[in-house]
Design a protein around this nucleic acid. Structure first.
Lengths: 190, 190
DNA sequence: GCCCGGTCGTTCGGATACAAATTGTACGGG
DNA sequence: CCCGTACAATTTGTATCCGAACGACCGGGC
């Protein structure tokens, strides 16, 4: 509950603040609300459905991806779930220790690891997904079905734009200076 | 780049998988794409504009909030930025050490801390925000201005729904069993 | 004056995330 | 057959992040 400060109020202030500067206001509003909505929804779901099952959002997403796609190679699962391979390794291990996920070797390529749900995992998803979906309906209950579809479509186009043209864009932006290393993560070996 | 597996393909598979189960598909699509779009956009911005300035997404958002709202109490900043109070403490300290943010005591209430931008911080935002906004425009470039506004409005309604009714909802969901404590977090000193 | 419930910001334990480094496997050419 | 390159998952090091616990502070009641 944000008190007296509402979202729209913030946007009005932003516009006033940026009076002299040319700003793409519609695009700014779209991006700002996108991240805010995503984290808000994530927190609601983590604190309702997922808390009871003692699963994090990421773990649930991984489970969901494997459930929907069936047995899959880990790098595809990481890609679909939107996490790095290294993160997936840990999440998969946790889910395996809980008996929900199975890791098996690829029949012909020894480098690959395949992920699939155990029977318990399948049963878990059949039981928990409806509750999850119920909360998805709750958070979007101020939108009609058509508005939800329109929302999903618009978001899809944002994702596609970045996925298809983001890399080129980033390259051209810092052309040609060095990419400035990330702060976190393992240090280069001198 | 998602390879041969597109988002829409995943959704079709999900529908097939859920053949027998009643599912709110539009709502599912909206939520799924919401989180995916948010993280995709965040990564793009962190790896383009913010990387050069050595700022995380969260740090930039905090800076932006203080810039737009002017001098503010920390709990309001945390609320607006969508992060916890504890996280803000660390981020504010980092930004202060960089000379972009100033922390000052409230004139009458000794419990409060006020955040404001330094001159350097103001100058920084005037310089970096346009570049940030340019990328906001890039990621939404497959949408018209009107579609961006519609997208922002739909997302706002999702946020409002959760902020205004989420707490009641969560309470009624686990009524009346115990809220199942979080796994992480500080332990009682006993 | 002094407690005492309430409200701040801060501290800190645990979990999670990323990306570089590493380890292990596959495969084509000498 | 034994390399070297390519590519897989995993390990490792660092940085966040959340939220419960905590200590500082406020203001009302006695």
């Amino acid at each position: 509950m944000p008190g007296q400060r509402s979202i729209t109020e913030a946007e009005k202030l932003a516009e006033a603040k940026l009076g002299g500067i040319p700003v793409r206001r519609a695009q700014m509003a779209a991006v700002a609300n996108m991240y805010r909505a995503a984290t808000t929804v994530r927190h609601h779901l983590e604190n309702s459905v997922l808390r009871g099952s003692d699963l994090t959002w990421t773990a649930f997403v991984v489970l969901w991806v494997v459930w929907v796609w069936g047995e899959s190679e880990t790098r595809h699962v990481a890609e679909e779930a939107g996490i790095s391979k290294g993160t997936l390794t840990g999440v998969a291990r946790t889910l395996e220790s809980r008996g929900l996920l199975r890791r098996s070797a690829h029949p012909t390529d020894g480098r690959l690891v395949l992920l699939s749900l155990t029977d318990e995992g399948e049963e878990f998803m059949r039981r928990v997904f409806p509750a999850f979906n119920e909360e998805e309906a709750f958070v979007t209950s101020r939108l009609t079905d058509e508005e939800c579809l329109g929302l999903a479509d618009a978001l899809r186009r944002v994702v596609l734009q970045v996925e298809e043209e983001g890399e080129d864009r980033r390259r051209s932006l810092l052309d040609g200076q060095a990419p400035a290393p990330r702060r976190s993560g393992r240090r280069a070996q001198s």
